[in-house]
Design a protein around this nucleic acid. Structure first.
Lengths: 312, 312
DNA sequence: AAAGGGCATAAGCTGGGCTTATGTAAACGG
DNA sequence: CCGTTTACATAAGCCCAGCTTATGCCCTTT
């Protein structure tokens, strides 16, 4: 339980003592000379002892005032330093939390460009799936997949979370060689699927009028925890994975992945979102990243999601 | 030029953070929970970053809040410590500034009794003649001789600054042996006076209808700077000195000094005064000393200044 | 003398910081 | 499962601490 004098008075005294002038202190504090005089007097009355000797039109410290000054100055210095440090750190470090998938397949590849455009900003990206850390101040900005409503948070839709089977060209070729013809959606239940237990396969079958092979769906397969890993497995020829076209357009363009059914893209109703605390939306670093990401998205979305692009 | 957040908000935050509870902080600060909530929110808005995560009916610190807390706590601790130290020192140390004379002849002999009565108080007596040090807080109380008006200071008259010739019994006897009769005031101009240059001798001569011997007054003699020294010189048999009866009553009673003309006491219009800054009059240590001194004075004055006492 | 700079003081205003009252959500206890 | 308790948020409104403005006085400077 603390017993402190009114801090406004202490502050006025400290400034006055440091400047050895009420007028100068007032200027420093953005007050009038009368205000400083008032506060100093109040503090002296509270202490029951004089802090200044008023003489010859100047105010000089009493021994008591002299003893108090250094401690108080230091205290205010450290308070100031604490907040300054915080502000500087906060201004110069942008922390983004995103899903493993988005980080791997998309953001990591372009964050460099943002960093180039804003060399004064240190950018830290961390991957996790907890949105609470935004409210807790662990990150400035989050990118998350979901239905899109987080209470008390501002969201911007980045792209629909669509999905369609993909595989490496070799894998597709092998499958078609086995069939002796071009692969059809209806062949998928018996094709080599990396993670057949994934619920989304069921939805994709349903969306595309394919009767799922119950037995096939209960095959063991591999759970890879996230789409990024499944995508990489697919590129490595491990089989088919349900992937989001937007995230893999680079790999598709480079021929590392193929999309056998560009017409058969399911949407899970989810999307990827940029999520941020609304009260921080105008903080410079947040504003810059938000604007940059939405611009890049806008630019990327047009060609990428068109059928033309998918059919490369 | 400092840039600090409002200190009331910082204080509220610090208390809330330390207690990990707004309600407890409010109790500590003597405010309502709403006030703390308001201030913390204001600080968070100012910083543009959350300091607490509100969850499950509790408030937990964010990492940022956690980083700020120790610095701020320390700062407030040291502010508190500065004022506490000052208060404790101030409460336990009574500083009295007095004249050399009064210190020597009177106060030093009785300060022990005051100290006995107030063992918790350390008493420091310093002798100097500057009254300014009271305003500068160098001393709590002053005892001074003078006409009695110090602007802005409270004064209590202790005793009139009367004076009359005194000498050692031997000295008086020698003088009377030389004369062959009892000493008369009119004999003084040619008697052995320690400091004949002292203006007060002139006044005493005048008050007692004695024609001063111009030549005698221009005798060299010894300037001893203060009455204490003159009194001691007189006791040592160096000659006659003009002394204040009140201050030497002990020595008169003990036979170390004699007062040849108890009826011929001059008053210089001055007095000895207890002087103190009115704003500190009720500070315990000041009040105690003031009351003690005035009581002792009252007690001492009655018998001491009566003619009976003087004629011992 | 006159001008200027510094602090004190009085009077009066104003909005920051408080209180009171109420809402909400979670934890608790029976 | 429901009433009770506890904790924080929020709204509305009040009040006085802390400010400003205006003035005076004193000392120094020119």
């Amino acid at each position: 339980m603390r017993r402190l004098p009114p801090l406004a008075a202490v502050r006025a005294f400290e400034a006055a003592a440091r400047n050895e002038s009420f007028t100068a202190a007032a200027a420093e504090l953005g007050l009038t000379q009368a205000a400083v005089s008032y506060q100093v007097k109040a503090l002296e009355e509270r202490l029951g002892a004089p802090l200044f000797v008023r003489e010859r039109g100047r105010a000089r410290l009493t021994p008591l005032g002299h003893r108090l000054l250094p401690t108080l100055s230091q205290a205010f210095d450290s308070i100031e330093a604490a907040f300054t440090t915080q502000r500087e750190e906060d201004e110069s470090l942008l922390t983004i939390t995103t899903t493993h998938t988005f980080a791997n397949t998309w953001l990591a590849w372009r964050l460099g460009a943002f960093q180039m455009a804003h060399p004064e900003l240190a950018v830290r990206m961390s991957t996790s799936n907890d949105i609470v850390d935004l409210k807790a101040g662990d990150a400035d900005i989050a990118i998350r997949a979901g239905p899109g409503h987080w209470p008390g948070l501002e969201t911007h839709k980045l792209f629909e979370s669509q999905f369609t089977p993909m595989a490496s060209p070799e894998c597709l070729a092998a499958e078609e060689r086995k069939l002796g013809r071009k692969l059809q959606p209806s062949d998928m239940p018996t094709a080599h699927i990396i993670n057949p237990g994934d619920d989304w396969w069921q939805q994709w079958f349903c969306d595309n009028g394919v009767a799922p092979d119950e037995k096939a769906l209960r095959r063991p397969g591999i759970r890879l925890d996230n789409q990024a890993n499944e995508g990489h497995a697919a590129m490595a020829g491990q089989g088919f994975a349900l992937l989001t076209p937007f995230l893999w357009q680079g790999d598709v363009a480079a021929g590392r992945l193929v999309v056998p059914f560009p017409e058969s893209i399911s949407a899970r109703g989810w999307a990827y979102w940029l999520v941020l605390p609304p009260e921080r939306r105008m903080v410079p670093k947040v504003k810059r990243f938000r604007e940059w990401l939405l611009a890049v998205m806008e630019e990327a979305r047009q060609p990428a999601l068109s059928d033309a692009a998918m059919e490369i």
